[in-house]
Amino acid sequence: MSAGSPGAAAAPSGAPFGARLAAAMDEHGPLCVGIDPHASLLHAWGLPDDVSGLREFSLRVVDALGGRVAAFKPQAAFFERHGSRGLAVLEEVIAAARAAGSLTIVDAKRGDIGSTMGAYAEAFLADGSPLAGDALTVSPYLGFGSLAPAVELATATGRGLFVLCLTSNKEGFEVQHAVRSEDGTERGTSVAALMATHAAVLNAGAEPMGSVGLVVGATIGDAVAATGTDLVAVNGPLLAPGVGAQGAGERELATTFGEARRNVLASSSRAVLGAGPTPEALVSAARDAAREATDALRG
């Protein structure tokens, strides 16, 4: 097991995140492997639920799959629950993925206002920060404008953002489907559609796609149509948990994403990680998941 240096992160090289992600998806398939060190997965791999197990698990995944998948998505919460030493492991994971030539989307879902959002942006998007991967998930539910510090810093450093838009949890509709009306009626624009419109403005003219993406669950059925959300116009990557073995096949994906399917990055964690701990088993599971995602999204 190799370890990446937890020192300061280098700036992403060359093209903006959207272009780099598109190239990685073309080369490896539209699959993002989540690194979610649940206690149950650590146990299944024969590892202790402590910092040593966290480190062993996470770096084994990067060692096995680095340079073989379009991106990794470490879930920050599973590192944070181990305190400062867990965050140090997250820094190692980001550095190791970079050394292996793989993109990293840090799944931290940060969202706040003013200087606090600015501090989050510096932590996860600034050149020189050891927590800065290639992209960050963010929550817009204090208003899309509250994300301005993250948008500005991601643009300046060539990194990307994935904005929560339509999620598969049953409570999500309470906010995401809500309609903003100017006259007190139920006519207006849904919150989800507004998120997509903001992203589309930021991505306008970008080729092959912009760097501000959305998180859209693959198992949300007709929610895209029901909320009037234009995913094609977004012109950015769509991070989609729930593709393939997790529930959504070609028919469901056609309903959810329609003509935007080619911009979908399928996220898989337990379907791949559950095949471990051997490198060979992880590679085989990731290859199968990437093939399944490619067939469903680009067939």
Results as ranks from 00 to 15, higher is better:
residue 3 A to Y: 03
residue 3 A to H: 05
residue 5 S to M: 10
residue 5 S to F: 13
residue 6 P to V: 03
residue 12 P to S: 14
residue 14 G to M: 11
residue 17 F to V: 13
residue 18 G to W: 09
residue 20 R to L: 12
residue 22 A to K: 14
residue 23 A to L: 10
residue 24 A to G: 13
residue 28 H to V: 14
residue 28 H to D: 12
residue 29 G to D: 11
residue 33 V to D: 12
residue 37 P to K: 08
residue 38 H to N: 12
residue 42 L to V: 14
residue 43 H to W: 09
residue 44 A to R: 08
residue 47 L to K: 04
residue 48 P to L: 12
residue 49 D to Q: 04
residue 53 G to R: 13
residue 55 R to E: 15
residue 56 E to S: 14
residue 57 F to E: 07
residue 57 F to T: 09
residue 59 L to V: 13
residue 59 L to Y: 07
residue 60 R to Q: 11
residue 61 V to Q: 01
residue 61 V to K: 00
residue 65 L to P: 02
residue 67 G to D: 13
residue 69 V to T: 05
residue 72 F to E: 05
residue 73 K to T: 10
residue 74 P to D: 12
residue 76 A to N: 01
residue 77 A to I: 08
residue 78 F to V: 11
residue 79 F to D: 00
residue 82 H to K: 03
residue 84 S to I: 07
residue 86 G to T: 04
residue 87 L to M: 13
residue 88 A to H: 05
residue 88 A to E: 14
residue 89 V to E: 02
residue 90 L to W: 05
residue 91 E to F: 01
residue 94 I to C: 06
residue 97 A to L: 09
residue 99 A to V: 14
residue 100 A to Y: 03
residue 114 G to P: 03
residue 116 T to N: 07
residue 120 Y to D: 02
residue 121 A to F: 04
residue 123 A to C: 10
residue 124 F to I: 09
residue 128 G to N: 11
residue 139 S to Q: 14
residue 140 P to R: 08
residue 141 Y to F: 15
residue 148 A to E: 15
residue 153 L to K: 15
residue 155 T to N: 08
residue 156 A to T: 14
residue 157 T to D: 10
residue 165 C to I: 11
residue 165 C to N: 13
residue 167 T to K: 11
residue 169 N to A: 14
residue 171 E to I: 08
residue 173 F to N: 07
residue 176 Q to Y: 01
residue 178 A to N: 05
residue 180 R to D: 03
residue 185 T to N: 05
residue 189 T to V: 10
residue 191 V to I: 11
residue 193 A to H: 06
residue 195 M to V: 12
residue 197 T to S: 11
residue 198 H to L: 00
residue 199 A to R: 02
residue 199 A to F: 07
residue 200 A to M: 07
residue 200 A to C: 10
residue 201 V to C: 07
residue 202 L to V: 06
residue 202 L to C: 05
residue 204 A to G: 04
residue 205 G to M: 08
residue 205 G to C: 06
residue 206 A to P: 05
residue 208 P to M: 14
residue 208 P to G: 14
residue 209 M to C: 14
residue 210 G to N: 05
residue 214 L to F: 01
residue 214 L to Q: 03
residue 215 V to H: 01
residue 218 A to L: 02
residue 221 G to M: 02
residue 225 A to P: 00
residue 229 T to M: 07
residue 231 L to M: 09
residue 233 A to T: 11
residue 235 N to Q: 06
residue 235 N to F: 04
residue 236 G to N: 09
residue 238 L to N: 01
residue 239 L to G: 10
residue 244 G to N: 08
residue 245 A to F: 05
residue 248 A to K: 01
residue 249 G to L: 02
residue 253 L to H: 09
residue 256 T to W: 00
residue 257 F to T: 01
residue 258 G to P: 08
residue 261 R to M: 13
residue 264 V to P: 03
residue 265 L to I: 10
residue 265 L to C: 07
residue 266 A to I: 03
residue 267 S to W: 00
residue 268 S to C: 10
residue 268 S to A: 15
residue 272 V to F: 06
residue 275 A to E: 01
residue 278 T to S: 15
residue 280 E to Q: 05
residue 284 S to G: 03
residue 284 S to N: 03
residue 284 S to E: 12
residue 285 A to C: 10
residue 286 A to C: 10
residue 287 R to P: 01
residue 289 A to G: 00
residue 289 A to M: 00
residue 291 R to M: 04
residue 294 T to R: 06
residue 296 A to T: 00
residue 296 A to W: 00
residue 298 R to E: 08
residue 299 G to T: 07
residue 299 G to L: 08
